[in-house]
Design a protein around this nucleic acid. Structure first.
Length: 559
RNA sequence: UGCCCGGUGGUGUAAUGGCAACACUACGGUUUUUGGUACCGUCAUUCUAGGUUCGAGUCCUAGCCGGGUAACCA
């Protein structure tokens, strides 16, 4: 269970945890939590946090909860709760407890009353605009709200009446009485409760006042016995407030630790913008395989193992980094290379007729399912007179660097024979529509008895037995490494890649693929990793390209 | 403009005062019935300037650069 070997380097968060255990802090216990707000779908950035929080618990013999920070009913919904649970489980983690901040609304209310009684909180009648004005600025002192010195009795009465629904939204708020001249804006009498006559997805209409994140998060951690409250960097300035509430209330004090969120090249991580892509139908839903969402990546064919390996490789620091998409692709390829069975598929078919192969005859050729995994076994695929190869595997004129077929050149058809092209048949427009070739029956093992060698090995499928499929090729959703860097006068959506989805129809697959079901993953040899999409039916197969293979030839061509 | 947090190859991380290490990318090569995989090789004055120290990427000071931050969002 423990991934920590003596050589394992601990990131700074794990180092803190390890030190705390060594020092006997929290009685050597470790409790973490993953605390999403159920207002959207999880993306790969959340995966980093999930792997960190659950990973720490696993590694140090602790526990990790899944807690929904559902303190703002406006944007939240059970649809998201279910999706989040599914995604966390799919990633390979199981929570100790499933919790909701909304379960603590009664306790939180009592704590608010306690702070009022201690003169540390007051009901304020200022409008949002007035609060902003009175807060001052970075170089501007704050001013006390005229309601700051209300008596405890009045505050108690007013707060109860807020709860009872006697006031309209925005009419009043409960504020912490801290320091209107703090250099940290979060401490200039922050709001604790706001009035929202809104239906909550779990508490229904019981409440019309809702606690702010700051007044709910730390106390929720505390209630759950969280020892290490790990969150992202933008909450650094909230830590003093987190600590202030905990200390004022005199309750168990978890330690908040902040780390840098994930940034990926060619990828947009903003929840708001992802929502916009979905709403404006710029993508086909949250699980569009181009989306950086966990469900999108799942549909695309990415494995949880690959995602976890990625999260492990990127490390945890406080540095605002930009990770290259290539690293994610490496992790995906690495896992799929070991686990995905090989198959032959021709995405852009060009017919090949083996003129010296008897008409109407077929023979079965053996193919290794996975050269990286002997236990995957072998399969058979039919070879005959008419075949398909990739159109790009034939060139009329080619340099010596080209390993494909040209007229008068011989190549190997993988798992079959040496094949030589004799003639390219063209249509009236001059397009090559068919290759007339001959094969050498003596090369059945893939080698020639006379020792002659071929440079190229091509993939192929039997025309008579091939099954048709639609294949969806995915490219990065954005053209730019940093889609958030928006040029003057441009919109972030101008950076969308028009070729992020390329749909191919009439692709020809080896017959064994006919029985593939949604979720099945394969390596189409020499092409990439593909999985069966959920749109796929027995009548119409649909494949998604998860990631291409590394292509050394394409690279050398670029030069 | 204040406050907070950062800064190590193209990228991401490591080095916990003692030989700057690992991975990715790129480039070159070996092997190969996938131009895949595997394997080998090449790529750094640790942001700058001072200081402390026998010794500084690491500690101190200043500067420069980057990020966060002034919702009744999280």
């Amino acid at each position: 269970m423990s991934e920590a070997t003596p050589e394992t380097k601990l990131d700074f968060v794990r180092q803190i945890v390890a030190d705390d255990i060594a020092n006997g802090k929290n009685n050597g216990q470790v409790q973490t939590r993953f605390p999403p707000e159920p207002n959207g779908y999880l993306h790969i950035g959340h995966a980093k946090s999930i792997c960190l929080n659950f990973g720490i618990a696993q590694q140090f013999g602790g526990k990790c909860n899944l807690r929904f920070d559902d303190t703002n009913p406006e944007k939240e919904d059970t649809e998201y709760v279910q999706a989040i649970e599914e995604d966390v489980r799919w990633l390979g983690f199981e929570w100790e407890k499933k919790l909701f901040a909304s379960d603590y609304f009664d306790q939180l209310y009592e704590w608010a009353v306690q702070l009022i009684k201690e003169g540390k909180a007051y009901v304020c009648d200022q409008t949002v605009e007035e609060v902003r004005e009175y807060r001052g600025g970075w170089n501007k002192e704050g001013k006390h709200s005229p309601y700051r010195d209300r008596s405890v009795e009045e505050n108690l009465d007013l707060f109860e009446r807020m709860k009872n629904g006697e006031f309209a939204d925005g009419e009043k708020s409960l504020r912490a009485k801290i320091d209107m001249n703090s250099s940290n804006m979060n401490l200039r009498d922050p709001a604790m409760y706001r009035i929202r006559h809104e239906h909550h997805h779990r508490t229904g209409d019981k409440w019309c006042i809702y606690p702010m994140y700051d007044f709910a998060h730390g106390q929720s951690d505390s209630l759950e016995g969280v020892t290490h409250s790990v969150c992202t960097l933008e909450f650094e300035n909230h830590r003093p407030l987190y600590d202030w509430y905990i200390e004022s209330l005199g309750i168990h004090h978890p330690q908040q630790i902040e780390f840098a969120r994930l940034n990926l090249t060619y990828t947009m991580m903003s929840k708001r913008k992802l929502l916009e892509l979905v709403n404006e139908k710029l993508v086909n839903g949250w699980d569009d395989p181009r989306m950086p969402t966990i469900c999108g990546m799942r549909r695309r064919g990415v494995t949880p193992e690959a995602l976890r390996a990625f999260c492990d490789k990127i490390g945890i620091t406080k540095f605002n980094s930009l990770t290259e998409l290539a690293l994610l692709e490496l992790c995906i390829r690495d896992h799929l290379n070991r686990t995905a069975n090989r198959a032959m598929a021709v995405l852009d078919p060009l017919k090949v007729v083996i003129t010296n192969y008897p008409e109407g005859e077929t023979e079965m050729r053996q193919a290794i399912n996975n050269p990286e995994d002997e236990s995957a076994g072998i399969r058979e695929m039919p070879f005959g007179r008419e075949l398909y190869i990739e159109r790009k595997d034939f060139m009329e004129e080619a340099s010596k660097k080209y390993f494909g077929l040209t007229v008068d050149k011989e190549v190997r058809f993988k798992n079959a024979f040496f094949v030589k092209c004799n003639e390219a048949i063209k249509d009236d427009d001059g397009n090559v529509v068919e290759l007339r070739c001959t094969y050498d029956p003596e090369t059945s093992g893939g080698k020639a008895p006379d020792g002659r060698k071929v440079k190229g090995t091509l993939t192929w499928v039997s025309a008579r037995h091939a099954v048709d499929a639609e294949v969806r090729l995915y490219n990065p959703l954005f053209n730019k490494e940093k889609p958030d860097d928006i040029e003057e006068g441009k919109d972030w959506k101008d950076g969308l890649n028009p070729e992020s989805l390329v749909t191919l129809t009439g692709c020809k697959l080896e017959p064994s693929l006919a029985k593939a079901i949604p979720g099945d993953r394969f390596q189409f040899e020499r092409t990439g990793y593909f999985c069966v999409d959920k749109d796929s039916t027995a009548d119409k197969l649909v494949f998604n390209r998860t990631v291409t293979l590394k292509d050394g030839f394409a690279k050398s061509k670029k030069k």
